[in-house]
Design a protein around this nucleic acid. Structure first.
Length: 692
DNA sequence: GCCTAAGTGCTTTTT
DNA sequence: GCACTTAGGC
């Protein structure tokens, strides 16, 4: 078990008592240290497996850790609690929902559902939707929760009308969730803390149970996660946190990498171990990563090194456009697959939207791939509808899901009826299901009741089938023979194969178990078992993974670093850390790719080369296709029909600033906007363009 | 109540 | 470019 470990790794494993901070650079064997440490605690120190709590951020990391520990400990591993923060929170709430005023069958809303609730509340408040951004309000509520602030706590910080509005909506939002017996993602972290603060005896039991606590990716913890771990480990203080401040990439979710830098202050006698030797990447790749990350000002310097000297140089390729970019990657993959399994190839990008062209290219070339984190499966209407039915069957009081399907398929329940139901529910403080007592909606209620009754003697897959039958969804989709309906049916069949896999792996699965897991794992690829395929994913999802061959596409200003990060230097630094994460995923070969022009938001644009590429020393790269920079002009339709345009005219745009008309061809006017957008073209009828 | 066409706004990253 | 909303006719 302890073979082939270096001195620092061994020390991290054997320091079992007291607080321990492991600063682990990329590829330094962090996961190995964590898993071996757990195994060591059990097999060498004789610690009861059920006294150990290991927390990760992603389901994937948790699964990986479980598998590895299982290999070392066998079935003893089952008693170790290894989970993500959110699933750990959920497990606490499953035991103590009563103390918090919830019923056993509470449901968990995904972030779209939360947004729907916020929208609804704001509409009820008669707020002009154009004036207030729902998403912004939802995000503010979410941040407040992650900072452990109730509406009342937040009140003290009101400085303007918007703040006041956030507090008002937050209060109503929380009331709504409680009436609906439902929780959002943030509640999974916040409520356990509320519980522990209110009931010290319950906390004491958890402290007693989890005498040994391990936290992975500690640099990504937010306030709620930080407090939660602190509470649980505050009695025995056997807390081991592992992380790398250079890989902190979740500040948008409230994570604070100061948590890792402050660890020594929090725990006075903390031991600190640095893992600086990289076992993953070649020197050529590591050099590129190091030259980029050293541009961050707010950073603790460290020296990540490797002795893998003989590698290939990193390639920087510049394509014509995004199609060409995808084509290039496809060509390279076809070469690679002669010598490497497809599972050792990853294509990484900054935003999910970038997967599309890549998918098309791979599809055309018959190269199997998977898109990780692609939630599009669960976002599809038919799947969401089915899930909504399952949720309502499980928790009748879940208004959000009920309203989604009360008229699906069409049953003649329209806006008026629904409005009435909502009003009734609001005055009586009940859920919609509870106030239904007549009309077509009673018919709906009967369907749900019937499914609930039948459910008792059915497997999960049978239940899904019965819902499709009883609700009329299947009939609706088969009665009209269109391609769209065909696809929908296929997706529903695919869903059934997910439930089947579930049941094969775990035997009888309750609806509760299934819904819980789906709400925490919104990624269809987690349940696919095709292994030898190319992996497409965002850089964020790639964290913690490694591949022999890595392509990073879209290395352009405005994309990577992303447009929205360019205003704040601290945000650009986070983008740089993200870039560092991307590069350090590669073991052997790395390609950095961008293109001269691409279609973005429905417009053609020419983005400058990413600053991260420019930060790399020339002699570290092989450059391909680099020529005539910055003269690319693309065209599209245009604009304010009432105005006349001449070359050289100045125009202004709310987002892009002041631009100059560079060419006119019939109805197409091309406008150049300054850095960093590059040159943007605008479509016909775009009102935000004004001639000056 | 339902359907369609036209209009609008927005896309960062995730549990 | 797309998903989502809205208005207006049936």
């Amino acid at each position: 078990m302890l073979e082939n470990l270096n001195e620092e790794q061994l020390e991290a494993i054997k320091t079992t008592e007291g607080p321990l901070l492991v600063l682990a650079g990329a590829g330094s064997g962090k996961t190995r240290v964590l898993t071996t440490r757990v195994a060591y605690l059990v097999s060498e120190m004789g610690i009861d497996p059920s006294n150990i709590l290991a927390i990760t951020f992603t389901n994937k990391a948790a699964k990986e850790m479980k598998d590895r520990i299982y290999k070392m400990l066998g079935s003893l591993a089952y008693d170790i609690q290894i989970s993500t923060f959110h699933s750990f929170g959920l497990s606490i709430l499953k035991e103590h929902y009563k103390e918090l005023g919830y019923d056993k069958n509470f449901t968990i809303l995904d972030s779209d559902d939360s947004l729907t609730v916020v929208k609804k509340i704001m509409k009820d408040m008669d707020l002009d939707p154009k004036k207030f951004n729902y998403k912004m309000i939802r995000n503010r509520i979410s941040s407040a929760k992650n900072e452990l602030m109730s509406p009342k706590d937040l009140e003290r910080f009101i400085g303007n009308d918007i703040d006041q509005l956030v507090v008002d909506v937050y209060r109503k939002y929380q009331d709504k969730l409680e009436i609906n017996n439902s929780l959002d993602f943030d509640d999974l972290l916040m409520l356990p803390i509320t519980l522990f603060r209110k009931y010290p005896d319950i906390l004491a039991r958890y402290q007693e149970r989890f005498k040994y606590v391990l936290i992975d990716e500690y640099q990504d913890t937010n306030e709620a996660q930080y407090i939660l771990t602190k509470l649980i480990s505050s009695k025995y203080k056997n807390i081991c946190v592992v992380g790398d401040n250079d890989q902190s990439i979740y500040s948008f979710r409230g994570s604070n990498y100061q948590n890792i830098l402050n660890f020594e202050k929090d725990y006075k006698n903390a031991k600190v171990i640095m893992l600086e030797r990289n076992y993953r990447s070649t020197k050529q790749i590591l050099d590129v990563a190091n030259t980029i990350i050293k541009n961050n000002k707010l950073r603790k310097d460290k020296n990540l090194w490797t002795d893998i000297e003989d590698g290939d140089k990193v390639i920087y390729h510049r394509s014509l456009n995004e199609k060409d970019e995808a084509f290039y990657v496809k060509e390279k993959i076809e070469e690679l697959r002669k010598t490497s399994p497809l599972s050792e190839i990853a294509v990484l990008y900054r935003t999910n939207a970038q997967s599309r062209n890549m998918e098309e290219a791979l599809l055309q070339a018959n190269i199997p791939y998977k898109v990780v984190g692609s939630i599009y499966f669960y976002k599809r209407k038919e799947i969401k509808d089915l899930l909504a039915y399952l949720s309502v069957v499980y928790n009748n009081r879940d208004d959000i899901n009920l309203l989604r399907v009360i008229n699906v398929p069409k049953r003649g329940i329209g806006t008026k009826t629904i409005e009435n139901l909502e009003v009734q529910a609001r005055i009586s403080g009940k859920s919609i299901y509870e106030v239904i007592d007549s009309g077509k909606e009673l018919e709906f209620k009967r369907i749900i009741e019937d499914i609930k009754e039948k459910q008792e003697n059915m497997s999960l897959t049978e239940l899904v089938d019965y819902i499709l039958e009883r609700t009329g969804i299947r009939e609706e989709l088969t009665s009209d023979d269109t391609i769209e309906n065909e696809v929908r049916l296929e997706n529903l069949e695919e869903f059934k194969s997910i439930t089947k896999t579930f049941e094969e792996e775990r035997g009888i699965v309750s609806l509760e178990e299934f819904l819980d897991e789906l709400s925490l794992v919104a990624d269809a690829t987690e349940y696919q078992n095709n292994t030898d395929v190319v992996t497409l994913m965002t850089v964020h999802s790639a964290k913690g993974l490694e591949f022999d061959n890595v392509f990073v596409i879209g290395m352009e200003e405005g994309i990577f670093p992303h447009q929205n990060s360019l205003m704040e230097s601290s945000d650009v630094e986070e983008e740089r850390r993200l870039c560092y994460v991307a590069i350090t995923r590669a073991r052997k070969k790395l390609w950095l790719i961008n293109c001269k022009t691409r279609t973005l938001y429905g417009m053609d644009s020419a983005n400058p080369v990413s600053r991260f590429i420019k930060e790399i020393d020339d002699d570290l790269l092989i450059k391909e296709n680099i020529q005539d920079e910055r003269k690319v002009i693309t065209k599209a339709n245009m604009i304010d029909k009432n105005a006349e345009y001449n070359i050289g005219d100045k125009v202004s745009h709310d987002t892009f600033g002041v631009g100059v008309v560079v060419s006119i061809d019939k109805s197409i006017v091309t406008i150049a906007f300054p850095h960093p957008i590059g040159i943007k073209m605008l479509m016909k009828g775009h009102k935000s363009i004004k001639k000056i």
